[in-house]
Design a binder for these strands. Structure first.
Lengths: 343, 343
DNA sequence: AAAAGCATCCGAAACGTTTCGGAACTGTTA
DNA sequence: TAACAGTTCCGAAACGTTTCGGATGCTTTT
């Protein structure tokens, strides 16, 4: 492999200047810079990461550590995310690597310890955080850069990219209260996920703002599957007494289950029940193909890899905290699954 | 992070001797070695991979590069394999990393080029090889160590771990010919997989040895799913004329489809049709729970990660080719799905 | 004419490790 | 007593890169 010295010799410059030229430093003549780069290319020069790491402290490698879980492989999202991050970091001349471990989620700290101890990795991506996430506190304590997909706590002191879960679910709920709904069911995800808590806060705040007390909250938690939508709907709508007039679903999958249940129960959408969902474009289900077409909040997860990579790269470069805390955009798409409640 | 120099200072020795002590070199006193190791541990010393790589040429990191494919995520095996390799290499004080790329299978060479160009990785694991695998020829040409899960061609000149696919399917076929079967169907995998070719050769050789000509071969190729077993069985057994008296299945999944089809067609196992399969313990299907219990050749894939890691580690260490070409063991488990053909 | 500023370059040190060549002992043999 | 072998240790060089502190020459200002 060609080294800096080879390039220096071939271009008649010092190693120093060649290094500065290739790294786009200020004090090198434009013409020399171009020449050096041409020579480097012709020699197939590729910087030795180990040498670079040794002196600069940066290897240009970042990683994601995940415990092997049964649902991991079946989770199509996961691989999609890994590939997305991989290409994003490639575009930044960085390497993204995945480390799958058999260790349980609790015993995962030593894995990080090894990985940062020998200095192979510059930083980490953390997915699926939970409140009091031990990985985050460990990395923060060690001073290792990392970025979280999501947020830990309100007002976190770490780099993150997240969508405005609270705001989104405030908007969804508020849309229903504005239509006159007062008994609004919320089929949320697993309670220990941070985003589930945020969504709950948004829902509750919107209810409060509409003068609906907490005693009127109708909430179900569970894995975000069709089964949750199905079972919850049957429970809620087949019961005696006042039933909800609207349902907010944490995912399109859940909404699909709700549609099935309401169909079986002979309830029509939106006349009898309004349905809303959040669409992260994860499931392959086309929301427009629902009948009636499903109204959703729309925030594709696939658009998060780029900002996520940006945040980590900037965090490693030592950017200010405020610059590496970013919120994705979202929109509400109204179709035909909501209406004013029957009176 | 503690460095060698710190350990040297703390133990009153030179950096040289500390290095030699930690790496178990010969010319260091037993007592000093123990003392040095104790000090290193107490200082939480962990060798800097970059520095080591720089001088010794080894980083202790190996990788697996895979293109992002839709079937990848759903493939439970894949993740299992990644985790298996990860733990195996961890046990050898090496790091195993996965690089998922969006590049197509053809355009994957540049990814390897980048990864070895900057010297981050010592070697690679190659999965799912095909005949004339371009990755293998590239890596061989570049002199980069790699190990193949499977074999490329007969008599390959690369490191590999494989099971004796030809021998296994020779044995399965031969078991049937010995019982008197002469029309033996073979439901094999996708034809471009190397192991599919090897299995075919075993099947054909056993037929030839039993005096059964190639015109009597009954072969189907396809993805190794229940569907293949189902569809093929219906085609083969619902046809007019002489039908097979036995079926060899490339996987337990296929066999499950065969069982279903034969049940529907009113054919009983093993009286009307004998069924055999190869079990790699991939699908969660219990072969003993088949009715009648399925006879199989047994070679758990999960046992291949250790030898695979061994081979690559040895290949990087510069072992002889013969020492890094290994064949796994297998056994034939006879249960109740085969019998002599009805005459 | 001297001083100051600028653009462009370079030598040398540093990062943490391994390894080559040899040194300093001890004990053994001629 | 000298030569030798064996054991245990160490200094210094090397790996390929970045970066600090300065050097050189040229232009502009005082």
């Amino acid at each position: 492999m060609a080294t800096l010295k080879d390039v220096a010799k071939a271009s008649g410059l010092s190693v120093t200047q060649v290094s500065r030229a290739l790294n786009n430093h200020s004090d090198v003549n434009e013409a020399t810079r171009d020449k050096v780069k041409a020579v480097a290319r012709s020699l197939h020069y590729s910087p030795n990461l180990s040498a670079r790491k040794l002196v600069s402290g940066r290897s240009g490698m970042v990683g994601l550590v995940v415990p092997l879980m049964p649902d991991l492989a079946s989770d199509g999202v996961f691989m999609e995310g890994v590939a997305g991050l991989s290409t994003q970091f490639s575009d930044r001349d960085m390497q993204f690597v995945l480390h799958v471990t058999r260790e349980s989620e609790q015993a995962i700290i030593p894995v990080y310890k090894r990985l940062i101890g020998n200095g192979a990795l510059d930083g980490f991506v953390l997915m699926h955080p939970d409140e009091n996430d031990c990985r985050a506190s460990y990395l923060a304590r060690e001073g290792v850069p990392f970025v979280v997909h999501g947020r830990i706590g309100t007002d976190p002191d770490h780099a993150y990219f997240d969508i405005d879960n609270e705001g989104i679910f405030y908007d969804l709920t508020q849309h229903l209260t504005a239509l006159g709904h007062r008994r609004i069911a919320f089929l949320n995800g697993l309670s220990w996920r941070t985003y589930v808590g945020a969504r709950l806060r948004g829902y509750q705040r919107a209810l409060r703002d509409a003068g609906i007390g907490p005693e009127q909250e109708i909430i179900r938690n569970g894995e975000m599957t069709e089964a949750l939508g199905l079972v919850s709907s049957v429970e809620l709508f087949a019961a005696d007494g006042p039933t909800p007039t609207a349902v907010i679903c944490g995912s399109v999958r859940i909404a699909k289950g709700v549609y099935q249940a309401l169909n079986v129960l002979g309830l029509s959408i939106p006349q009898d029940v309004s349905v809303l969902a959040h669409d992260d474009h994860l499931s392959q289900i086309q929301t427009a193909a629902f009948f009636p077409a499903l109204s959703v909040s729309d925030a594709p997860l696939s658009e998060s890899w780029k900002p996520l990579a940006d945040c980590l790269a900037d965090a490693i470069a030592g950017a200010d905290l405020a610059d590496v805390q970013r919120i994705g955009s979202h929109q509400i798409i109204l179709r035909h699954s909501t209406a004013a409640p029957r009176r």
